[in-house]
Nucleic acid binder design. Structure first.
Lengths: 324, 324
DNA sequence: CTGAAAGCGCTTACAG
DNA sequence: CTGAAAGCGCTTACAG
């Protein structure tokens, strides 16, 4: 190592000056810092990873990169991890458990320090490796069933329930459930939604679920389907604000008053929800915080801090606006 | 290496079976594959990187993760790179050259095989390392001035010019330029926009540029400013469809007919542009293709393929819709 | 087609 | 507070 030679110390001292400066005499440290600057030295992470058997890389797996929801979660992850000195490898699972397992395998080759996942339960492969090589994982978005593993999110069931209760309380008699992009979280929102309707004695028969990705155009399409099949429908809960925006545009195109003829509720509070005309009632979800807190929980584990508990419920908030 | 022992060959043969199967006898290869499956072997990338002095990781630096534009570019990058067997480290530069240079330094420690950047010109640090360690880089979104370095994108100036010509040709007399998020690409669109107005003998005096990030709410705000200061304005070009959507909502809120009283043009063709009411005239940009082609150009360089030229102009398309 | 030797640049674990 | 030795698990470069 040229830096060691330049500073007149051993490579060990250079290594220590970088990782644990307190253990190095100030004079040595200063000479090392000067040498690093002079030579433009950049430490070789691969060597560090090989020697220490762990890296500063976190494997992050999200369902989709084209969904604004997950992007904000990535921002939260990035903010915490970059502060903590970690990099991350981002993988897109396409909402598939198999794809997620496959990406975990690939990433394992990089000796990641940990994983941030979005599956609703643990993978066998990770259980095996987590036990073997102590690679911790935190799951995001939904809450685990128990405190057995680590998860950060909110109750998708409660969120669906809350929207339905809101619509019922405002006198809507025939609310629809509209969704695209089959995924377990969406199904849980649906579960909560149906539960509230049933409790209120309303038949939960109006729903359209499409497997395709969520887009604004899809929202317009879903609204058309509902109007065709259930002309008496007076409110729609769209599983994502993309769909809600499309539904709003379709109502405008047909001259249907919102919320007079058709109420619209969305989910996530994406950037247009608050300033649409009319503004869109939605559930504000803690997407950024989920990423930030999940990263924090993971790093705390890596650093051996005591973790109070395995589940962190960040909650959500109903934003009542003009569209309902 | 346990796999070598299990298969009764040397570690070298295992290595070859993985990287260059053609060089290994079929029998050996089969035994090695069986041993890998049996033992659940995952190759250690850090060791491979250290030994070969290069990794399968590409450093990708985009201005922002919260902008849908760059996300689609990441999708293109991912599709090409994952097919080619590479991973990528994503960094967010916040539209700052300094931050980009700093991230390059950090990533250099991972011995990346190459870089995909979004700055408008090369960094000193990279020039130094690219020369030293042969780390190639491809720049995305805008086109380089010369064929000296590699870039994939389209002409931002022409795009701005095209929108302005369209507005002029449709008889608008007082078009405004609205933008947020100062960045060099936006300034080039402005340059083209002003040029077209000047050629048509129109004074290009109506513009509002804010440094803050682009959001839908910001679009509404920009439209209010324009109406206050230039009540005779009859058309707005919003530098991004987020802004255009906000401007449309603000017009709806004020009861201004679009395009009768106010024409609105956007940029990028984000998902709502085509299905808004009215649908929004915009420039369709090849975001996904930029990522895909930039990745391809980078990998081709890494594999020593002859690259026809340094600049790849992917063009753009004007989508004329109801809002103008 | 295959293998023995050397080494990539760090860190661990020890000794002082 | 510092350093010499050994080794992490691969690949390179060579020899056969």
């Amino acid at each position: 190592m040229d830096v060691a030679h330049e500073a007149g110390v051993s490579t060990m001292t250079v290594s220590r000056a970088l990782k644990a400066p307190d253990l190095v005499q100030e004079q040595s440290r200063e000479r090392i810092i000067a040498a690093i600057a002079k030579l433009g030295y950049v430490p070789n992470q691969a060597a560090a990873t090989l020697a220490s058997a762990r890296s500063q890389v976190i494997g992050v797996l999200v369902p989709s990169l084209t969904n604004a929801v997950f992007i904000e979660t990535l921002s939260g992850i990035r903010d915490y991890l970059s502060e903590a000195g970690y990099q991350f490898l981002i993988g897109e699972t396409g909402y598939s458990r198999e794809k997620e397992a496959q990406l975990i395998s690939t990433y394992l080759a990089h000796a990641p320090a940990g994983f941030l996942l979005s599956s609703s339960d643990q993978h066998e492969i990770l259980k095996k490796h987590a036990a073997m090589r102590h690679i911790p994982a935190v799951r995001m978005f939904d809450l685990g069933k128990s405190n057995e593993d680590f998860s950060v999110g909110f109750s998708q069931i409660k969120a669906g329930y809350t929207i339905a209760r809101h619509l019922i309380d405002h006198g809507y008699k025939r609310p629809a459930f509209l969704a695209a992009q089959m995924d377990p979280r969406m199904l849980k929102r649906r579960e909560g939604f149906r539960k509230a309707l049933q409790e209120a004695g309303i038949v939960a028969d109006i729903e359209v679920l499409l497997p395709d990705p969520t887009t604004v155009g899809m929202g317009a399409q879903l609204l058309r389907k509902v109007l065709e099949s259930w002309p008496d429908c007076d409110a729609v809960f769209c599983c994502n604000d993309d769909l809600a925006l499309g539904a709003l545009f379709e109502c405008q195109r047909r001259g249907l008053d919102v919320p007079g003829r058709m109420a619209i509720a969305g989910f996530n509070d994406l950037s247009w929800a608050a300033c649409a005309t009319p503004s869109i009632t939605t559930i504000i979800t803690p997407r950024y915080e989920i990423g930030y807190k999940a990263a924090e929980m993971l790093i705390d584990q890596l650093r051996g801090k005591a973790i109070p508990k395995g589940r962190l419920d960040l909650g959500f908030e109903l934003a009542v606006r003009e569209s309902t």
